[in-house]
């Protein structure tokens, strides 16, 4: 397991000398993305040709009516599923060229996820859930603990490190998920409806937290959401309609 992991790190590291070029190139680039789900004889078109670039540091929301393809697009960008046609290039690597295990490595090192619910491994404490990523990354115990504690402090959960998910509120669970998404120092965090199960206060706190982390760490965020409070806070807003991008606005920061 470990040599493989080291290999991936090296591959990622080897990309760095061209940093100047890469800084200008988009972090995520989708071209002609088509996804059609086949259910028996029925074909369900979920994405009908999506072209999308995300720049490094973007804090973007992805909205649209139910069934418009938000989750599907996040799945494609996150390497959780493969498109029927088109390409996703993430951090200079075309996902279509990667095998299952390589995709897993890519997710582990380059992508952080925040899901709508059941985000955490129930038998692990908050701290262990965050550490889980670092363990998979092969980080040494001392550094692992240090970074996990910091990540939990960043999301305001000092003192709750030892609690299992069942003993955390929905808002606290989502904060742990955010800490876990960021602790591995990914290039991008993908979140699907992160606030859907939260009340107004918790939702607002979570979105403020993510915006602050985006500003401080420069990590790119892409969030699928219906939540107007989230959309209002976004610096860039993308609308999907029927599997196509129907609008894409960037607001001046502030």
């Amino acid at each position: 397991m470990c040599p493989e992991r080291a290999g991936t790190r090296n591959r990622i590291a080897r990309g760095q000398p061209e940093g100047a070029l890469r800084e200008r190139s988009p972090l995520v680039s989708c071209r002609g993305l088509i996804k059609t789900y086949v259910q028996g004889a029925i074909e369900v078109p979920a994405l009908r040709g999506v072209d999308l670039d995300l720049a490094r540091g973007d804090f973007a929301t992805l909205a649209g009516p139910s069934g418009s393809g938000k989750t599907t697009l996040l799945n494609m960008i996150g390497g959780l599923d493969r498109p029927s046609a088109g390409d996703v290039v993430l951090d200079g690597r075309n996902l279509a060229t990667l095998g299952k295990a390589e995709l897993a490595e890519l997710r582990l090192h380059r992508i952080g996820f925040v899901f709508q619910s059941y985000n955490l491994i129930p038998v692990l404490s908050a701290l262990e859930n965050v550490e889980f990523i670092l363990r998979l990354q092969g980080i040494a115990p001392r550094e692992r603990r240090q970074r996990a504690l910091e990540a939990l402090a960043d999301v305001g959960l000092e003192g709750l490190e030892g609690r299992r998910p069942a003993h955390l509120s929905g808002g606290q669970q989502q904060r742990v998920a955010v800490a876990r998404a960021l602790v591995g120092r990914p290039a991008i965090v993908l979140a699907d409806e992160p606030t859907a199960n939260l009340d107004t206060r918790n939702a607002e706190e979570l979105i403020e937290l993510m915006a602050a982390l985006n500003a401080r760490l420069g990590t790119t965020f892409l969030m699928g959401t219906h939540d107007a409070r989230v959309i209002a806070r976004a610096q860039r807003h993308i609308e999907l309609t029927d599997g196509r991008i129907s609008s894409d606005e960037t607001r001046p920061a502030g």
Partner: peptide, 16 residues
């Protein structure tokens, strides 16, 4: 099933 999916999404390999 969902938990195993989660672990894989986070980057754990099927072998693990």
């Amino acid at each position: 099933v969902r938990e195993f999916g989660l672990m894989q999404a986070l980057g754990m390999k099927p072998r693990a």
